[in-house]
Amino acid sequence: MTHVLITGGSSGIGLEVARIYVGRGHRVSLIARGLAALDAAKVSLETEGGGQVQVAAADVADADAVQAAIRACETVFGPCDILICSAGIVAPARFEDQTAADADRQVAVNLSGSMHSVRAVYASMLARHQGRIMLVSSGAGLMGIPGYAAYCASKFALRGFAEALRSEAKPRGVVVSICFPPDTQTPQLERERAARPAEAEVIMGQVKPWKAEAVARQMVRALDQGRFEVYFGLTLLALGRLAPLVRPFVDRYFDRLIRGVQR
């Protein structure tokens, strides 16, 4: 039976991905920081029936903690077959206003946390010559957004990690994917928008937030098909595939909008 392990699985996109795999009858492990939220997610998923669910609390920024949590999950459900790195945080602020601690925390969770999670399952996948990994970047991993300097840095870096890891893993039977979701209707989005600078809202408000279920469906479909990159909507597809060509035009357009806000 397939073992799917999801970091950041207690809410939002991660929880919706879990819902799909539980519906398929798979074994699903959820990892997040808050045990209460994890327990609530487990009850919700088990009520719907299908697969088996277990949870483990850990901060993905702590390499030892996330490794221990994953080992505990694998002891019960067997080696991880599919890893979804969905744990992430965002703290919008203009760069000059953001503390070093807040900036570092975003990099630690979004980038290092994904690397820690992959490292915990990667050797076993290589040994078995099979496994699938989905890294969750962001539309902010395709273009710089004012008020999101640290967040963009962490999500841009994930793409470099994914590209390098894909080249290493593919000949050895392990499939690596990365997705770039837009604003998505999650509890985190509501908290984020309250702190979002006006300049950022001018840019990000151009795209209507997606439902978490729709994002999850596309992610799982891409994993089923073994696709490397997953984009959501034509705007992000164009940025992902044609960025060097369209970026000057996009920048000029948004620069005008931002100047209007700052007047």
Results as ranks from 00 to 15, higher is better:
4 V>Y: 14
8 G>L: 11
9 G>F: 10
14 G>Q: 05
15 L>Y: 01
16 E>D: 03
21 Y>V: 00
22 V>M: 03
22 V>G: 00
27 R>K: 14
30 L>V: 04
33 R>S: 08
36 A>T: 15
40 A>L: 13
45 L>E: 04
47 T>Q: 08
54 Q>T: 10
55 V>R: 04
58 A>W: 01
60 V>L: 14
62 D>N: 15
67 Q>F: 11
68 A>T: 13
71 R>D: 13
71 R>L: 08
79 P>Q: 02
83 L>S: 02
84 I>G: 00
87 A>Q: 10
88 G>E: 05
96 E>D: 10
96 E>K: 05
97 D>G: 14
98 Q>C: 11
102 D>S: 13
105 R>P: 00
105 R>W: 15
108 A>Y: 12
108 A>Q: 14
109 V>K: 05
112 S>R: 14
122 Y>P: 03
122 Y>S: 09
125 M>N: 06
125 M>E: 06
126 L>N: 07
126 L>P: 02
127 A>E: 12
128 R>P: 10
130 Q>D: 12
140 A>D: 10
147 G>T: 01
148 Y>L: 06
149 A>W: 01
150 A>H: 05
151 Y>P: 02
152 C>G: 09
152 C>K: 00
156 F>T: 13
157 A>T: 13
160 G>E: 07
161 F>H: 09
161 F>S: 04
162 A>G: 04
165 L>K: 08
165 L>F: 14
167 S>A: 10
168 E>Q: 12
170 K>W: 04
172 R>P: 02
174 V>M: 07
178 I>V: 15
179 C>E: 10
179 C>R: 02
179 C>V: 15
190 E>M: 13
191 R>Y: 10
191 R>A: 10
194 A>I: 09
196 R>S: 07
201 E>I: 09
202 V>C: 07
205 G>M: 03
206 Q>N: 12
207 V>E: 09
211 K>Q: 14
211 K>T: 13
212 A>P: 02
214 A>Q: 12
215 V>S: 04
231 Y>A: 07
232 F>K: 00
233 G>E: 08
237 L>K: 05
242 L>M: 11
250 V>L: 03
252 R>N: 13
254 F>T: 01
255 D>Q: 11
259 R>I: 05
262 Q>N: 10
262 Q>D: 14
263 R>F: 05
263 R>I: 07
